[in-house]
Write a protein that binds this DNA or RNA. Structure first.
Lengths: 216, 216
DNA sequence: GCCAACAAGATTGTCAACGATTTCGTTGCC
DNA sequence: GGCAACGAAATCGTTGACAATCTTGTTGGC
């Protein structure tokens, strides 16, 4: 009876359940508004209910699930209005990160950004929206990372986790990649030029365009 | 034996403990890095350890306490560097709120901001830093509120909760109120003029000055 | 036939006890 | 006298059971 996949990690039961649940939600394996019954989850993940409870409390605090007194937990559904509000926050926070990255990044990191840019251009030229979406995430993540702003990084990762469903929907929209590509290249250009103000402006322009696309 | 202060609210034990603990930390009643032993807290608040555990997990997710496996919980100490990083995030997020408030606020709310401005001027003129600090918080809170940006508001409140100790230290610094006052008045002016860009710039200038003061 | 009161089922909240891990003081050895 | 291994105390993590609450299906009355 395999209780855990990787015993070497020494994960506590709660951490194990937390990570499993978080990934399941982030991958969209849990339907939106699906009920999360503690007993079922406990059996499903092979841990006790207390561990599931702890994980759910933490996920609720991250905004991924919704808990109602004596009524249980659901995966939270984010409305379009809320997705816009979240993206507005991303806009200013990623703007901050880009500005700092333009100052803090070293030459090797700048090269990595340039490589990502060419890869993205290729993905668009080849008409591979899936690859492009993946590179998109990588680019945003790298810029965050290079900024060295850990507080902003944590906030952004938390916000991004709430957008999985909308993000999925947005990536498949035809013509979106072409528009997005130009904006991304502008961001990369500004950071490589070590111009914090231009970098912030470019990121904000990009996410403003995402907000437009979200609102349709 | 009074078990709870207000039975009318119908608070669950966990919610009760959570609120008590959060306020105790926010008011600085718990020393920084103080150990939070679950048994002691349980007895102190008249609830069981399970409730305390749930509350601690939530507070840890909010960044107010720090939990280490099998080692217990402490109230988290934020270094000066971290306080600066947090304030950088506040800078862009409050900038966003101010810009939205400049567009969204109604006339009554603008009047309230103006009144707060005159009250702050008076507090500085009378040399009452305590009153000024209080009005300061009110002003920031009102601007957040008027923006209607609930996501940003929640992020900001979470960030602010982590700064209690540094904020306390900053308010007492001589000459700080005078400088701060001018920046605050500029923010109010920009919002009343319904100029989102100017409002954002004013807020960012103000918090940039706070960052300078933090770094000394 | 429809609505309200009621009861059964399901689910979460709470509790006390057990097991695992870490910390710290003590003892024995070099 | 200093250091390592050992053991006791403290504390957290986990478990299973119980109580409180909500939901749902049923029954009785109008």
């Amino acid at each position: 009876m395999p209780k855990e996949a990787r015993p070497g990690t020494g994960e506590q039961a709660k951490q194990h359940a937390l990570e499993q649940l978080r990934q399941a939600i982030s991958r969209g394996e849990m339907a939106p508004a699906q009920r999360l019954v503690e007993n079922e989850l406990a059996e499903q993940f092979g841990v006790t209910r207390a561990s599931i409870r702890a994980a759910l409390i933490e996920l609720a605090s991250e905004g991924l699930v919704e808990r109602i007194r004596n009524r249980g937990s659901r995966v939270r559904v984010v409305s379009v209005e809320e997705a816009v509000a979240i993206t507005e926050c991303r806009m200013v926070l990623e703007g901050l990160c880009a500005a700092k990255a333009a100052v803090e990044a070293d030459e090797e990191q700048l090269t990595e950004l340039a490589d990502l840019g060419t890869a993205m251009s290729k993905a668009v030229a080849d008409g591979e929206p899936l690859t492009y979406s993946d590179l998109n995430h990588q680019l945003h993540a790298r810029i965050r990372e290079f900024s060295g702003q850990r507080v902003a990084v944590e906030l952004l990762e938390r916000l991004n986790a709430q957008l999985v469903r909308h993000r999925f929907q947005l990536a498949l929209r035809p013509g979106r990649a072409q528009r997005s590509l130009g904006e991304h290249l502008a961001v990369i250009e500004a950071i490589r030029a070590r111009d914090p103000q231009a970098a912030e402006a470019a990121v904000r322009a990009h996410l403003a365009s995402v907000i437009d696309a979200l609102s349709e």
